[in-house]
Nucleic acid binder design. Structure first.
Lengths: 333, 333
DNA sequence: GTTAGCAGTCGGTATCATCGAGTGCCAGCC
DNA sequence: GGCTGGCACTCGATGATACCGACTGCTAAC
């Protein structure tokens, strides 16, 4: 626990470092608002803060920069602050004008968040497991290929191609289709539904295959769609080329991104700083996440990925506002 | 037109510059295979090549680097060469194992191409305009929201939400759905189909709306899906941070990418060098494109985006092989 | 407990000399 | 006539050196 003065000094260092990316010296801190002591006193306090692990010195006789622990303390004691007017306006306009398919909207939202924060942003769609099936259909594409298509209540579509070992005629497909429909409609895709046979082997096995295909996709838990916006912002955020490349590589891997967000959220965090992300290549990054709710239920997640010296205050405000408005917008329908 | 010796010297300069990224001096060229003259002669020839615009000098008393015109000459006189064995093997394994949905396959193909070339790669899906509708369905999502879903012969799905001004009951939706189905199935989405009314206003207007939604999406010509793979490779390809950022920004804009590829292809090029891409921010890039064919018809495009000093030989070979195999794989179904 | 003052540290920048790859040109050679 | 070896010259890159300035830690005084 830090006393009031140390906290103020740490806050000043973090804020200054975030905005300048330069090690912060005692002089600057002493001149910061909220710190009403001389630079000598600041120096004494900074020695303590360094011993306790909140600050570090890149080299002797340089200023201090925050450690992960320092950022953590800073973030934990950051009061809520609202997004500036311009940003809030941008969010409002966006959701007022938003229309069209769910996917498009989530994708656009990721771009919005990236624009607001000038960091890379991700939006994970609601897992389809919870969605109720509104329609299922089997469509013959080729003699031995059938496409199983399910329309879910949230407007999403899930489809799987099924390759058959023997050709099947259109009528059998139609019968299988309606059989499957009566079985699944009104349930979710993962629910364990009772399958009663029709007596015709070809039809029953097609229905079983389709059902299996839908359910298999969810067992691997890799079905959640993720949208990455503003990946190019990563370039400006770091000066080390390697870091940029590594971070971009991570962002290209949808599965990794999804599990990263889930991980952080599961640990009850809304901000993961540096190594708290649990990924080696993201050691220089911080991640802000927030779930959004549709119809009062946790639906998906949004997040912002920036450097550890990101503008937490602004990014937190942006993420909070966007997650809230996105949820509201999706709830309205 | 360059005489044989000048061409050989130019070739040597380009090859050397591609592999080292350093200005190439007369000494190196003289030592290159295919050039059997002394460095002094090379110097004399290089003066001419510079005057004619094939080479340029970053500063006096440095080596030469190719100009766009130089690269162009080099590429135009590049014989076909096959991809190395490792790469060819990788392509073969990929397409042997490829399975699943079309979208997933195209997305994976973009990653394959990026892996092969170590540049960013793009794959554009076949325009849905040509695909025949196999199934159409209207699904009520909410009292005033209906989802129109079309399953196309290539396994793609197109969907549009339709918001109604008044609530509609399930039976009317079902009737509209089957009416729409009988109208569209067997045709393409853009075809001008005759619409005969049922006499019920609500149904007819829903059918018309759905049809309109499908067709509107194509009039804007923005419907082609594009998959970008290996964007992170851009980082390694350029040393200027600005360039990296600009190129990534371009790659984030799907519409831009699609029209860029179309543009280049329309001009009959398979390689666009620097300003030939027609985009200011891509001045330092070269783009290799190739169409792929499904069932003997041009279906989509694949491309590789690298620095102007990219390994054209290898990239051309990779693009050719992948486009061919992709087409074959999609034709087989 | 706080602060002014001071000696000391050390990275960053500017200056300068050196080095070497490369050029253009010329005179001689085949 | 074309090619080549030789040579003087250019100029960016590299490395050494000195200097500057920001910052620290410490001490003594308030």
């Amino acid at each position: 626990m830090l006393d009031e003065r140390k906290a103020a000094i740490l806050r000043a260092v973090v804020e200054e470092y975030i905005s300048t990316a330069q090690p912060v010296g005692s002089g600057r801190v002493a001149r910061a608002r909220g710190v009403e002591v001389s630079s000598a006193t600041v120096r004494n306090e900074m020695v303590v803060l360094e011993q306790e692990g909140y600050l570090q010195q890149p080299h002797t006789s340089a200023g201090r920069i925050p450690t992960e622990k320092g950022y953590r303390q800073f973030v934990d004691h950051l009061g809520d602050s609202a997004l500036d007017l311009g940003g809030a306006q941008q969010v409002r306009t966006f959701f007022d004008r938003a229309h069209g398919e769910l996917e498009e909207m989530l994708s656009d939202t990721s771009r919005l968040l990236a624009d607001l924060t000038s960091y890379a942003a991700v939006v994970v769609g609601a897992p389809t497991e919870q969605a109720i099936v509104r329609s299922v259909q089997l469509v013959a594409l080729a003699p031995q290929v059938v496409l199983a298509v399910a329309v879910l209540a949230n407007g999403t579509i899930e489809k799987h191609t099924i390759e058959l070992s023997a050709a099947i005629d259109d009528e059998a497909v139609a019968r299988a289709s309606s059989h499957l429909a009566s079985t699944l409609i009104g349930h979710t895709l993962v629910e364990h539904v009772a399958l009663d046979g029709t007596g015709v082997v070809a039809i029953d096995s097609l229905v079983a295959d389709a059902l299996g295909a839908f359910q298999a996709a969810h067992r691997e838990s890799g079905a959640d769609q993720v949208y990455v916006g503003g990946a190019s912002r990563v370039v400006a955020a770091f000066d080390a080329v390697d870091t940029v490349s590594q971070v971009l590589t991570i962002l290209e891997q949808q599965l990794v991104v999804v599990s990263l967000l889930r991980d952080v959220l599961d640990r009850g965090l809304s901000v993961a700083i540096g190594s708290e992300t649990g990924m080696e290549p993201l050691a220089a990054c911080s991640l802000i996440v927030a779930p959004y709710e549709v119809d009062g239920e946790a639906a998906g997640t949004i997040g912002v990925l920036g450097p550890t010296r990101m503008d937490y205050s602004r990014a937190l405000a942006a993420v909070a506002l966007v997650s809230q408005d996105l949820g509201r917008r999706l709830t309205e329908g």
